[in-house]
Amino acid sequence: MSNETLSVQAEPRSQFGQGLVWMALSMASFIGMSVGSRELAATLSIQQVLFFRALVGLFVILALGRALLPELRGLKLIRLHLVRNVVHFVAQYLWTIGVVLLPLASVFALEFTMPIWVAFFAWIFLKERLTTPRILATIGGFIGVLVIVRPGVGMVDPAAGLVLIAAAGYGLSLIFVKQLTRQCSPGAIVVWMILIQLPLGFFAALTDWREVHVTDVPWMLVAGLGALAAHYCQAQALKRLDASVVMPIDFLRVPLAAVVGYYSYAEAIDLWVFLGGGIILFSNYRAVMAERR
């Protein structure tokens, strides 16, 4: 066997291995962002948490985003950027409330209803077909949510409803991002996200401003850098792996979050969360595989 043949065979394996590493970094970053946000919310308001997360992002883009200045000056699709980031900001606010009030594993499990919302909004805004696999995924996802929140078994935590609304907001935001990528680079989309959400977070934080301590700064860095790193690493993983591979791997955030919650906050590991999350995962995975066929 020639060296050229061995090189061709080794390249996909290398790409797969790199994709797994990027995905592991993405999951760690998401969990880091969640822990940092929860720690900040112990002393600061949730509005301040969002503001300082965006502020950390601003310093990062000032250091790394100079090459994007010509594209940013063109103000291309600025109205869509504004709408997308208002929706995303509200979704982040509701999601952060869930992170503070619910076990971390429950938040991530409920967040995995987002692919269902993406399919629904793609049907409305992008005129994509609502196929049978997508409908079945929606039904399966709804069953999974019922298993997690278990209505009728005690009082359903209102924070779970907020996380579901946040997942819908993230889904709608993703549709807007898909529209933006037709004319804007991913880097420009991230920069506009920081530039728009920073003043939104600032004015929201003024409604409930609390004293900031030096001990809050490390958690600001964890939350802010974690947010940027999570999306960047996930994009790198998607370059190297199919979405049908990334999605099941990404679902490992649920047990990882449960472990972090158990050791950091003494949160009980709820088997109902894993059962309901598994139903949501299986429903979405079957839909993706059917779409690929």
Rank of each mutant, 00 (worst) to 15 (best):
A119K: 15
P70E: 12
H81D: 13
G57V: 15
L126Q: 15
A137H: 12
T138W: 11
I124D: 01
D157P: 04
L104S: 13
F112T: 11
R134V: 04
L102H: 05
T132P: 00
R66K: 09
I135T: 10
L58V: 08
V153A: 02
F89R: 14
G57C: 12
P133E: 02
L146S: 06
V87Q: 00
N85Y: 12
I143A: 09
P103R: 06
Y93C: 00
F112S: 11
N85H: 15
R84W: 03
I148Y: 03
V87S: 13
Q47V: 02
A105Q: 02
L77H: 07
V83I: 05
R150G: 03
P115N: 06
I148M: 01
P103W: 07
M155C: 00
V153Q: 09
V86E: 05
V145R: 00
F142R: 03
R134H: 01
T138P: 00
I97M: 04
V87D: 02
M155A: 08
V147A: 07
R150S: 03
P158Q: 02
L101G: 08
F59N: 11
H81F: 13
A67G: 15
T43F: 01
L146Q: 03
T96W: 02
L80A: 06
V100M: 10
G74P: 01
V118R: 13
F121G: 10
I61Q: 04
R129P: 00
A160L: 06
L82H: 03
L80G: 12
L69P: 03
R129V: 08
T96K: 08
W95K: 09
G98H: 05
Q92F: 14
A91G: 08
K127V: 00
A54Y: 07
R84F: 03
A160K: 02
E128F: 07
I143G: 06
L64F: 11
A54N: 06
V145E: 10
F125E: 12
Q47C: 06
I78H: 04
L44R: 13
Q92P: 08
R73F: 05
G65I: 11
I124S: 15
A160M: 05
G57S: 13
Q92C: 01
L102C: 05
F121K: 14
R129Y: 01
L94Y: 12
H88I: 04
F121Q: 02
F112A: 13
R150M: 01
G74A: 15
I143R: 09
I148R: 04
L64I: 14
F52H: 13
I97N: 06
A160Q: 09
E111C: 02
P70Q: 05
R134I: 09
V87H: 04
G144D: 02
F51M: 10
P103G: 08
A122S: 15
L68A: 15
H88G: 10
K127P: 00
P70A: 14
T96Y: 03
L102V: 11
